[in-house]
Structure formats: C-alpha cells, structure tokens
Design a protein around this nucleic acid. Structure first.
Lengths: 245, 245
DNA sequence: GAAGTTCGATTGTCCGGACAAAGCATTGAC
DNA sequence: GTCAATGCTTTGTCCGGACAATCGAACTTC
C-alpha cells in the first residue's frame, strides 16, 4: 500500500477535509481498490502527523457517503460496490445538459400572485400573501419534455425571466447564496388531459409522470414548491435514497 | 428554558446517543420550539456533566438529520420547518400498513433462475449464475396495488413464501441481519399492456407508475434488484432527497 | 477433529483542553 | 448620522490520552 497522503498545515482548508478529499480521490481513481483495508487509524494518524480524532473525522465523512465501511476489530475497508456518487438534488436542467441533450426553457408566466392554501402551507407563508409564480416549458432538442409550475416565497431571489431561460432554478438559488438541504417529493402518474397533451405534444390519455416537490434550505426554510409534469415517453427520474439509521 | 435533560451513565447506550434522542424527542414534542437557541455547548456540557465533544457529537447527529442548525458566533437553533421525519428507505408493505390500508401479498413465483445480463450487472454476480426470482402481487383492501418482481443474490436469505405473504421484503432482510444503506432508483410511467392491466385490474392503456431499484447494504453489496409496477390511480411515491455537501 | 477459550488488533466512546474563525453588538471616529 | 474598529460570544478545528466493545485468529481442551 504505497498510497501517497499528505496534508498542508498552512492551508486554511481543514486537515480532516484535506484527508477525506485525498482518500475519496484515491477511491475514485482506483488507487484504493474495493475491499482493501485502510490501515488502522492510530498508525495512519502517526504517519500523517495528525491526531486520531482528525483522522476519524475524515474517515467518518466518507463512511457517511457510503464509500467506506468500518468494522470493529477488523479495520476500515473500501466498499466494493457499483455505487458511484450519490446524486445531488437533481435539477432537470443540469441533468439534461450533462446528458448531452440541449436543454432550453420557455418562461410562460413569471408573476406575483396571492398564495393559495396549498402553496401557503407548503411554503410556510400566510394564505393570500404574495408569492412568485413561475410557469416554464422545458425542452430538449427543441421538443417539449416537461411543464414546470413553481412557487417561491417573496424576497428570496430576483426572478429574471432571461436568466431562467438560460439555466435552471436550483443554480440560480445557489448563486443567490441559498444552500439547498433537502426536498420532499411526491411522484405519481396519470393520463394527460387534452390541454396538457397539446402543451407537451402528446395525445390526450398519454401517460404523464407527475412530481410535486417542496425544497428546503439549510435553515429549514421552504424555498420552493412546484408541480411538474413530464412526458413519460421521454423522461424518468433517477435518484438515490439513503437510509438514516 | 426549563428543558429536562439527563443521561444515565450506567446504561450501555452511548451518552451522545441518549442526549440526541432526548433532544430529538423535545423537538418532536414541541418543548424545543423552532428557532429557539439551544444554549451554548460548553454550558450544556457542564450542566449534564459531559464533555464538550460528547455534546457536539449528539448535536451533530441532529444537524445531519436537518433538525438543528449551527451558526458560529450565534449558537445552535432548532430548524423552523415543516420537515417532519426524513423517510426511511420505503417499503411498500410498511407504507400501506402505517397508512391503515390492510396490505396483503400473493407470492406468484418464488424460484431460482440463471441471472440475465441485466440482473447480473445489477447484483454484481456472474451472468447465468443462480439468483432468486420472486414475483408478488401486493394488495390493499383486497384490491391489487402493484406487481413486484425482484431478484436477490443466492446465500443471502431464506426466502419463505409464507413469510413473504405476511410482511415486506425489507423487513425480512433486516431480520436476517442485513443493514440496508442506500438504493438507486429509477421511476417512470407508461401505459399498461393488456396483460398488465388484467393483472392489476386496470384497462389496457391506463397509466402505470414503474420503478426499478437496486438496494445496497452497508458493505456496498447489492442485495436486491427489482422492477415494480404500480397502479397510478392508487399509489404515488413519497420520499425525501438529501443534499450531500 | 470439533468445540470452546484466550488473546491481540481495531474501532467505539469519552474526556479535558487549546486556539482559530466567524457573528454580533457596542463603541468610537469622522 | 454613518462608517469603521473593537471586543465578546459561540462554534469550528485539533490535540493527546484512556478505557470499553467487538472481531478474528490462534490456541487449548476434550
């Protein structure tokens, strides 16, 4: 095991983070092969000139990510799995872009409306209070993929239609300093109405994939509530669920 | 803040875990109201007769769950959100049961077959090697809800048809000492074929919700691969996605 | 040869302390 | 009145050490 590890104490990056990144890179790169032992924590700490708690913190973050497994009396092993990287909270725009499809967006509606009871409950604002309402059509290769209707609380974000045609909503939020934390989603299916079909280029009665989502930032605030409709013939969700012990 | 906290040092339950459970219960119960400060870690540790690292470990676990937020120079606050509890890896059987529906299962097929290329790739076994194949019909109130087809690696579990009619697959796995860690899912929709419709009590062409899932345990092993078909008129997925920073 | 026992290795838990970094409020200067 | 400097509070990072719990293998015993 000739793994090259080193930390830079003059860097402002925390030591445990430097270490966890190097370990993760080694796993990703194949230098640390699945099933291989990592060497015990004490020795590893001594070799790097770190304390055991620091090494443990680095390892723990990778255990949480599912890249490592610790077993008492045995050691810490690299997981042998096909699991690559746990997906982020998926943005349809980014998904399409990285899949080589050329995503485009038409902003159909971008206005401020009074919150309905459902929207108010989801966003945690007063019923009848102002909320942004955005309706978008998402296209790939010029073909309609999905119809997206979103509500956002006021005073959160400048919603510029031009920006929304150039990128996805999540990226705009992150750029505005909002750190997304989690999303509650409900996914179902139903047959398209005539109106929906026309909008998406499907016949009436065609199967549609529906999603309702409320997204929360790291302070627990709801930052977005949306109802999305996807052409089932063109799209399916891929995501990874983690078990919280 | 008259929060009652105490730890039992004679208990085998780790101290940090005792504390995090009490804090979680207080949040759940409303004793700790959203937005309220938790009191600084040093003082909290002193009051409980614990060290600061132990208190931090307890708090950190709740931060990871999204129940608390820490801010330097400010303190640790209870998140003010409608986020309830992060869902576990959902088991359809348990979901139905806790929703008051009376779930039932018919085991249609329970046999060992050679692994197809797709199954072999998903489970990480040799193509043509033995795998369990289980087909089930899941009912609620006597009505068909879903058709479930699952593949499991050999030597993992005793697959008893009677047990599978009495409970869900995940519960059987956990009972066999398997700790589930994560699942990779793909959810889509399509129109029912005549055969599928008949099996589920829907007309041909009715919208169906489809799911493909590979489940991994904490060692990274794939422990299950399944293709499920749900009646969209009767069921939709609810789940929570977490962002991994 | 099989079963139980002991023992070393390794992670799990916990302690007490130290200094740095960031927020916030107050104070001070202009 | 506005802005910058200062100081206090709190979390973030890191250290070194101690003992317990668990696993696996070697060993002993029957």
């Amino acid at each position: 095991m000739s793994l090259q590890l080193s930390v830079d104490r003059s860097s402002p990056v925390p030591l445990y983070f430097q270490l966890s990144q190097q370990l993760e890179a080694a796993i990703e790169h194949g230098t640390l092969t699945p099933g291989s032992l990592l060497g015990n924590e004490i020795e590893l700490a001594g070799r790097l000139g770190l304390s055991r708690p620091t090494v443990r913190q680095a390892i723990q973050s990778l255990v949480d990510k599912g890249l490592l497994v610790r077993r008492r009396g045995v050691g810490t092993q690299v997981v042998h799995s096909q699991v690559k990287r746990p997906l982020e909270l998926s943005s349809l725009y980014d998904d399409l872009e990285s899949a080589g499809q050329r995503p485009a967006t038409q902003v159909l509606v971008n206005t401020v409306v009074p919150a309905s009871a459902e929207v108010a409950a989801a966003l945690g604002v007063a019923e009848g209070g102002d909320v942004h309402r955005v309706e978008r059509l998402r296209l790939a290769h010029g073909e309609p993929m999905a119809y997206l209707c979103n509500y956002l609380p006021p005073d959160l974000l400048e919603l510029d239609s031009a920006q929304m045609e150039a990128t996805g909503l999540y990226r705009l939020m992150r750029a505005a300093g909002i750190t997304l934390h989690s999303a509650r989603q409900s996914v179902g299916a139903r047959a398209a109405t005539a109106e929906e079909g026309e909008r998406l280029g499907e016949p009436a009665g065609a199967p549609l994939l529906t999603m309702q989502r409320t997204t929360f930032d790291d302070t627990g605030r709801a930052v977005e509530f949306g109802t999305h409709i996807y052409r089932a013939s063109r799209y399916s969700f891929e995501f990874q669920l983690l078990v919280r012990p």
